[in-house]
Design a protein around this nucleic acid. Structure first.
Lengths: 195, 195
DNA sequence: TCCCTTTTTCAACACTTGATGAAAAACACG
DNA sequence: CGTGTTTTTCATCAAGTGTTGAAAAAGGGA
């Protein structure tokens, strides 16, 4: 087996995928061009299509994550209700500050406001995977629980938008402990029963 | 005076501007095309350029607000420190839920993630007009005050992003009183001295 | 060596975009 | 009317887009 021409070294397909990841993360879906990706990978445009097909499929490939965000949330919730807010926040910061996992997330965040498919993806994730799951852990009538969970989600989205998309200071440069000290108590309050 | 051909009725230039406002608000800068604006206004493309010049200038014209956001913030702060968080939030919701003022704001919010000029505009507004002003009202060492003000800003941005950009439920449908009850206490806590 | 498969490039397509110059249309004024 | 000014459209441009077909290049297996 192993017929045909070998791939370039380092692997050309990987180079294209890597270039696509950084482009989508920096410019969003609409701002990214196949020619831009090809140029960054040092490759002809047609090769991008050869490997990944349509632009939407390249986007999907660039979004592939090693671990499903929903599972990550479940894992954090499964550890119990104590300091759930802080643990959630610490996990979030760790994931977003790692370029490997943060890049794809940033791509969705950057694309969503002007790309309806990304918006739907993000909206459904937040509503069904994040808010619904958190609401289940909150001891309150369903509507109230959902609202409180939504408050947590909106604070989390605000942090991500400020720190990673807009890079607003002093949030962009703050270290994890400072952000936890600043925001975790609020999350905790929303997640806990007592008012 | 009053020479030359009269404008269409209703005023064609206004129709173009109005169309531009809705397009930018719905699709962001990159997603909006001059032809799309012209079509919505029922007009030839060239007329858009004739009235407003380059696309960037049309964008600027569509962003023009009746009242400067910075002044609005000052006005709220000037009313004193009591329940500043709630008043800030109520003012914000009123402005964003009014299409006239909300449209241009939404345009910036939708454009910023993939349009660097919008991003710079929003970033500088949040850092200098919002965070800096709020920090001055917080009785704490400067660095801590800025961080707390930034927490308020990130929660506000998160609400705007969730409710108006992504339209996440139940935030998108919640009425003002419910949102105030949900989020104002947190803002108040960040803005007040006591921990 | 000669096939066969895979990778890579070349060239071109149909289309969209923002922009511009020239002409036409509509109207005010003398 | 006829002249001048403003509004509106038409036609066109160069640049950039995603996509595709065909050819070239590079290697494996017999």
């Amino acid at each position: 087996m192993n017929k045909g021409r070998r791939r370039g070294s380092p692997d050309t397909r990987d180079a294209v995928l890597k270039a696509a990841r950084t482009q989508f993360a920096e410019r969003g879906y609409g701002g990214t061009t196949l020619r831009g990706v090809a140029a960054e990978a040092g490759v002809d445009v047609a090769l991008v299509s050869y490997f990944f097909g349509r632009k939407a499929q390249l986007f999907a490939a660039a979004l592939a994550l090693p671990v499903s965000p929903a599972d990550a949330i479940d894992a954090v919730i499964a550890e119990g209700p104590d300091q759930l807010g802080e643990r959630l926040l610490r996990r979030l910061l760790a994931v977003w500050d790692d370029p490997v996992s943060g890049g794809p997330l940033l791509s969705v965040m950057r694309s969503a406001p002007s790309h309806e498919e990304s918006a739907a993806l993000l909206r459904e994730f937040v509503e069904q995977e994040l808010i619904a799951r958190l609401a289940r852990t909150i001891d309150a009538p369903p509507a109230a629980a959902r609202l409180r969970a939504a408050a947590v989600a909106s604070q989390v989205l605000g942090l991500v938008f400020s720190r990673y998309v807009l890079r607003i200071e002093p949030l962009a440069s703050a270290d994890h402990d400072a952000l936890v000290a600043l925001l975790a108590p609020t999350l905790e309050r929303h997640l806990s029963v007592a008012r």
